[in-house]
Write a protein that binds this DNA or RNA. Structure first.
Lengths: 222, 222
DNA sequence: TGCAGGTCGGGAAATTTGCCCGACCAAACT
DNA sequence: AGTTTGGTCGGGCAAATTTCCCGACCTGCA
């Protein structure tokens, strides 16, 4: 119960949990990481559920995670891990660098974001950064985010279309799917599909999270 | 002299432990409180566990605590503190003034309840009151409680039991039913049943309405 | 002209909900 | 002591919903 998590980093190096659904990729990067003598890969996982289990049993200093995995989203795994331990460091290691995905990752509680196209040195440096409690991202990710912040963009909601926004608004306001369908002259099925789509796009897993997001973005007033 | 504990107060002023998860808020009120020359902020804490630790090592005359903190409930911290020292004075300093929350705080052993919307003078006066062993609450809290005692079941939440409240809190915070079940060592089925029961009791139809209710009642902070 | 993407809904398996039930336990009442 | 009440916990099962796939339409845009 009272797990005093202190700085074991300095005494035993940085313990790492590797999460990626592709074993070869895991192996390859495991070797790269273990070449650093202050890194220890203490566990691996090939999906979100196993990642959470491994985190519980190993309590690694840093979780290096690919978020594009089959089944449950990697974002979910991040949220689960962070829900269990608010001090957990998760470094996302992704194939892509879309602003929306980066933002979703940080929104889920990630401490860093490095693309697989980056140099190993960049990943290694990022791991050291997040282990120290800092935030880190590779140069290409930073560039995308910087560009994206200059242009319009207000929130995680601008990845949603007009219709999706409206449905989210009514949903967060407390309307039933049937009511929304009636209001917008849609079939209930379509509203259900939108609901699913919105959750997928925003990376929210729970209706409650969706409502909070809507409120935070000023879509719904409390 | 027969007043052993009183003596320390008069000779060294009132020692205070500040508990709030928001550092800026802590800083701000620390400055306000230390402007009173008979006040001494001897420690700060940003969560329930640290609050208890700090109380043990500093034994302050008054604990000023925000109970809407992440992780373990502030109520639990109050109970822990009071269990260790039945003479402990805890002044709850909350964002909200729901009758249910106020009652829960006093039920847990709080000596006072002041909302963050109150004037600094009101907080200062309340601290002096509870330091003298009296009970104190800000005017708006008193009004809510008075109203609530005249009209039965004002808040929709006091028809809920301890367990139901906790489940609603976690649900509104965005947790999955599985996560809640894991946190509370229950079966998923039981959590589902509670979810249904809570909606039935509160008359909410939608999960979104439930979240809004929880936030409005100060159960969940956005 | 073609293609990307928002909108709209069907289909089907997997999961959850809605509502019922019984069991246990502690406190309060008779 | 016996009983009623009420909170907690979970099983069961039909009905509803979610999840994720798919195709179709329309519009803007290269």
């Amino acid at each position: 119960m009272t797990t005093a998590k202190m700085a074991t980093v300095t005494t035993r190096g940085i313990s790492i949990l590797l999460v990626d659904d592709h074993p070869v990729v895991r192996q390859g990067y495991r070797r790269v990481l273990e070449h650093q003598d202050d890194f220890r890969v203490v566990a691996e996982a090939d999906n979100a559920a196993n990642a959470y289990r491994a985190f519980k049993s190993h309590a690694p200093d840093v979780v290096v995670m690919d978020i594009s995995m089959p089944g449950a989203s990697g974002l979910e795994a991040i949220r689960n891990i962070r829900a269990r331990d608010a001090d957990a460091r998760v470094l996302v290691f992704s194939m892509h660098s879309e602003a929306a995905q980066v933002k979703a990752a940080f929104g889920a509680g990630a401490s860093g974001f490095v693309t697989k196209g980056s140099e190993p040195a960049e990943l290694i440096a990022a791991i050291r950064s997040v282990a120290r409690g800092e935030h880190a991202m590779s140069d290409d990710v930073a560039r995308v985010l910087a560009l994206e912040s200059l242009v319009p963009t207000k929130s995680a909601l601008d990845q949603l279309g007009e219709r999706e926004i409206e449905i989210l608004r009514q949903f967060a306001a407390g309307s039933t799917k049937e009511q929304i369908a009636a209001n917008l002259n849609l079939s209930t099925k379509t509203v259900q599909n939108y609901h699913y789509l919105i959750k997928a796009k925003t990376g929210m897993r729970t209706d409650a999270q969706l409502v909070r997001l809507a409120v935070e973005c000023g879509l719904a007033n409390l």
